[in-house]
Design a binder for these strands. Structure first.
Lengths: 188, 188
DNA sequence: CTTCTCTACATACGGTCCGTATGTGAATTG
DNA sequence: CAATTCACATACGGACCGTATGTAGAGAAG
């Protein structure tokens, strides 16, 4: 079964990329870990970049689903936006996501918005901002531009937190500063 | 003269990293381009990462100087902040800076704020925000947190612009959204 | 039932690249 | 003038990626 092979390789690749980084991950080791050889890998994913792309698509989809769930649980649309970004930052602190999606991904594959996965995370936050504008909850703004900037801010916050000695305190500072910035969107 | 050798290698490395990316740049080619061999490189910079570090320190210092110059030319402190970030975004669109400092740098060396260069750019914008707070121009805010988020937003804006079909229009959208976010800092 | 083809991998090979170990000529020091 | 150090060159080993080739099994064709 080919689908099973792909699954095994994806799991092994996620673990290897997360643990050693894209450049440091050996395809021989990684495939052996999955009980296969590089032949299977090149047959299914084309090359090493293709494998990274597949891993990223998977992670991106998972993150977008988590974001949407968080946003939908919120009592108020504006609160939903803040909750989503809090969740985004917290996810971006996870080593696997940070290493693969935020550091290696852009370096190897270039601008995330050009990825085939279409960057589901970005689409999700863009959609939410657009909804806020359409509902009149915030003044008109280019939703994609705002989402991109807020995503960038969140991502940097996550790098900061991950490298911090006191992650909890740093998270608090980052969230407070983020709220201030986001409120710039809410004012006329 | 050792300083001259370092200079030659740094120039060649900047060009090679910018053109082919860190992973794609061959140290044999790069050193040959400088009229030297890998021996000189390992003697002066330790390893490939050390060379990247040196290149990044150089670029970072240049950017910080440019930022400071822009900020000081401004008529008003708040305007200085906006001008600085406009300049930051415009610099971050330059292929050399984007490729080396923003994409490969974090992937290879990790969080920029931990770099020996101390990230002069971040220090510069942090200093400017702190000044605004101390002068009472904006309400109190954690200057480092705000600077990190705004830098992250700018960086993402630059990636967006660089990948855009119509960079000028995209730059306009990004700057407008950025102004909105920054104004969140200015309100009580 | 036989044969042929096609698929999904495995194996083999070549070339590139990095880091280190070693060599070397010039400058410096005592 | 001998000895040492420095700044760089050369040589070597090992790892890794991509491709070319091999192969066992399944299904189609006749």
């Amino acid at each position: 079964m080919m689908e099973e092979t792909r699954g095994k390789l994806l799991r092994a690749a996620r673990a290897a990329f997360a643990a050693r980084g894209y450049a440091g991950a050996s395809m021989d080791e990684l495939t052996a870990e999955a009980g296969l050889t590089r032949g299977a890998l090149y047959h299914n994913f084309g090359d090493k970049r293709g494998l990274l792309q597949a891993v990223i698509d998977q992670i991106d989809a998972e993150m977008a689903a988590r974001l949407r769930a968080v946003g939908e649980r919120a009592s108020h649309p504006w609160r939903g936006l803040l909750d989503e970004y809090r969740a985004y930052i917290e996810m971006a602190v996870e080593p696997e996501i940070q290493r693969i999606l935020l550091l290696d991904g852009p370096a190897v594959l270039g601008d995330p918005s050009l990825w085939p996965s279409q960057n589901a995370c970005l689409a999700e936050t863009t959609r939410r901002i657009r909804t806020l504008v359409e509902d009149g909850a915030i003044p008109p703004v280019d939703a994609e531009a705002a989402a991109r900037l807020l995503n960038g801010a969140s991502l940097h916050a996550a790098l900061w937190i991950a490298a911090s000695k006191e992650p909890e305190a740093t998270l608090g500072k980052a969230l407070e500063a983020f709220r201030r910035l986001a409120e710039g969107l809410a004012r006329p």
